[in-house]
């Protein structure tokens, strides 16, 4: 066997790939579901926190900042493991899927809150003043004038951060979730051949490349009309 043959046999073994493709596809479906749940919950919670923060209620803002800093500082894997292995001691048992979902949701919430907040504060004061001078209330100004502008500014960093954190779904494999990486790892263990990992990598590309492209499309779609 030449070196090249050894390489293709290890990473592109058609027989092994065919055998584990169904498992990888199942894992793909699970990763998509997990990712969607994280994105929806994380972004909604992040936006809500940023909106609450806009009201400027001091003690509440301190609490928000503390929470956000906490989940931005902790490595996602640590949170997942803590929830999965730690919570049962407190009498609360979460499945691997639920631990991964909750952990990454909290992390995305924390990062997206910071991004949304930065977007809100980047809208010039004059926009608030103009809107308020026409009789719009605080909430109306926030909803109709400030937020649409803030969201546009946040789209590039938000897309990046969302992709980065959603890729963290691979960490779910650590707590026995058969996602793409989990399924691929299992395949490697059973076949003694790393080809399932190649399939897994391809599956991640198939999943995230469109998201990256979509992010770019959204950016141009929402640029200011000139």
């Amino acid at each position: 066997m030449t070196g090249w043959e050894r390489f293709t046999d290890s990473f592109f073994n058609a027989r092994v790939m065919a055998q584990y493709l169904p498992k990888i596809i199942e894992g793909f479906g699970l990763t998509v579901v997990l990712a969607l749940c994280i994105i929806v919950a994380g972004l909604v919670l992040g936006l809500l926190l940023a909106l609450v923060r806009a009201f400027g209620i001091r003690p509440l803002n301190w609490l928000i900042i503390f929470t956000v800093d906490l989940f931005r500082a902790l490595p996602p894997l640590v949170i997942i493991v803590l929830l999965f292995f730690g919570l049962p001691n407190a009498g609360l048992e979460l499945s691997g899927f639920a631990s991964a979902w909750l952990s990454l949701t909290l992390v995305l919430m924390a990062f997206s809150e910071e991004i949304f907040w930065a977007g809100i504060t980047s809208v010039p004061r004059g926009q608030w003043e103009a809107a308020r001078s026409t009789g719009l209330g605080f909430v109306q100004t926030l909803v109709y004038v400030v937020l649409p502008q803030a969201l546009r500014i946040t789209i590039p960093p938000l897309t990046n951060r969302t992709i980065a954190i959603t890729k963290g779904t691979a960490l779910a494999s650590v707590v026995a979730v058969p996602d793409i990486l989990g399924a691929a790892n299992a395949g490697v263990s059973f076949s003694f051949n790393p080809s399932p990992l190649t399939l897994g990598a391809i599956a991640y590309l198939v999943l995230f490349l469109p998201v990256v492209v979509l992010g770019r499309w959204i950016e141009t779609r929402f640029a200011w009309k000139r």
């Binding site: 004059g126 809107a131 308020r132 001078s133 026409t134 009789g135 004038v145 502008q149 546009r152 200011w224």
Partner: peptide
């Protein structure tokens, strides 16, 4: 405030 219109130095139109 609806009885008092205001115009600003930097226009402050809503860009969106």
């Amino acid at each position: 405030r609806q009885r008092i219109g205001m115009v600003f130095q930097s226009f402050n139109l809503y860009p969106h």
